[in-house]
Nucleic acid binder design. Structure first.
Lengths: 286, 286
DNA sequence: AACAATTACGGAATCCGTAAAAATT
DNA sequence: AATTTTTACGGATTCCGTAATTGTT
């Protein structure tokens, strides 16, 4: 029978090199480590250490065992979080996203939670299978046999300009038109962040971490800022009257400013998720 | 911290369905299982069971946990055997094969052992990485970035015919020539077995499991049997004088009867194995 | 009545920390 | 002298089995 705490002792010994340091790292006494490693050798039935009177080191077998033990420990850790995540997913629908826009359409209910961190595109498959999230928005389709990627609609980037700004009276503008301007920008806007930085020449960006501070700044200045067709559903923006903002909203006509939004979920969970997805889809603007 | 014995209880409960049967299967008392599963829920921090007064069953989370636990248990088991095999490989060179012929060339030394079972072609990569064997003969090259497949030579199948048999005076014979005959055959001859059964029409085979019995039969009968160019190195055959056998050895000229032999090993172990491989290669007939 | 799960209690195994010993640098 | 490993001893935890209890079929 295998003992977990002994595997931990082995891996930390492999890192530290002495029993004393191992004990210190694990907050146990050093004789415990001595006994532990003796027991592990006994359990495995192989020699893991070369012992001299005052010195102990791993044999080649011991080094292999330490590597394998580390793998096993991480495997058990991920298993545990997977189970705990799955259990949570039985009571809540955890929603993740690579892009913040669609979150404004998520209904505010007790059984629906929104993950705090963005998820990278490459992490979507992993996040779903480990039940870190059960529903993930993305701007790309995910190709995976266990995952369904459903197209929801587009998010259209808009710029909000002071009425006296050049271009404010046009029906649309291009990134090129905005060259050289200064914008107030929320920090966490996913792929939009890179896009505006790359595609608007010589622009300046004043990043805001705090949502309320952002609102205050745009209320009491005439600086331009970005929204999208999904922002109108945003609780924060809904409180503001158009007069308070005193801007003209102009869509951006570059093709990349019209971003397709997909929702991704495990096929196996489709049935439970369908009502929520339909609700979000029905609320999609225009 | 995770406890192994509890994972075992969980997986057997998933199989048996009741705590009583679980206890019986594990040779412990039933209250132990009750407490064990309570502790596991405590450790995981999730509800694994639905309990009614007299009935207990897994929740969906519990079923997931049972599946994951089983994976973890097999992973730890394979890890353990891998370590033990590796340790053994530090003291012995374990030799596996898909075909028995090359084993006659393996020197008889204390630090060289021969695996009892044949290894399937598809299992070679796995057997090497788990150190089940450190040197494996095969009749095909293995394509794997961590494995080196070195060509050693050919094994040429021969048939040993009574001198009065038709074809006994020819320099070579074909499988077709042997149609309808009856042969004494050792049971464990790997791919040769299928080949002679498939390629010799209407032949009869009298299979022998025991080597000594096989020798006795061919000594005291005139039945034909198969050998190869590697058999002359075989300890058993070396004891026999040609007169005792009283057969004429004729090579088989079908192309498949000339089988290429490769030796496979982990590239990482090449240095230690090279002397042994060179020794085998040097002993290869003609 | 038979079966299944839980709870209560005492014993046994084991894991830990303290203290002391042995050996090296 | 300082450091590191090992051994010895006593205490605490915990895991187990027996026995009794509750509830269902």
């Amino acid at each position: 029978m295998l003992d977990y705490y002994l595997l931990e002792q082995l891996t930390t010994f492999a890192q530290t090199g002495t029993l004393t340091k191992t004990a210190a790292a694990l907050n146990i006494t050093q004789p415990s480590v001595t006994r532990g490693m003796q027991k592990l050798e006994e359990d495995f039935g192989v020699q893991l250490f070369e012992r001299q009177a005052n010195r102990i080191k791993l044999t080649p077998t011991g080094e292999l065992a330490a590597r394998e033990a580390e793998q096993l420990l991480t495997a058990s850790q991920t298993m545990l979080t997977k189970i705990q995540n799955f259990d949570r997913s039985q009571h809540f629908t955890m929603i993740g996203t690579t892009v913040p826009g669609p979150l404004t359409l998520v209904p505010d209910r007790d059984d629906v939670q929104i993950a705090k961190e963005f998820i990278a595109i490459e992490q979507i498959s992993n996040a779903l299978t480990t039940a870190e999230a059960t529903l993930i928005f993305s701007d790309q389709e995910i190709l995976d046999t266990t995952i369904e990627s459903r197209y929801l609609g587009h998010e259209q980037l808009q710029v909000n300009l002071d009425q006296f700004t050049l271009f404010a009276s046009q029906p649309t503008v291009s990134f090129q038109d905005l060259a050289g301007m200064s914008f107030v920008v929320m920090r966490a806007i996913g792929p939009w962040s890179d896009m505006i930085k790359t595609d608007i020449p010589h622009a300046q960006f004043m990043y805001q971490d705090d949502r309320a501070a952002f609102i205050e700044i745009i209320k009491h200045s005439s600086l331009p800022f970005f929204t999208s067709n999904l922002s109108q559903k945003d609780a924060f923006f809904k409180q503001l009257s158009p007069q308070q903002l005193d801007r003209i909203t102009v869509p951006i006509n570059d093709p990349q400013a019209k971003m397709p939004i997909y929702v991704n979920y495990l096929k196996s969970q489709k049935r439970q998720l369908l009502p929520l997805i339909d609700e979000i889809s029905a609320n999609w603007p225009e």
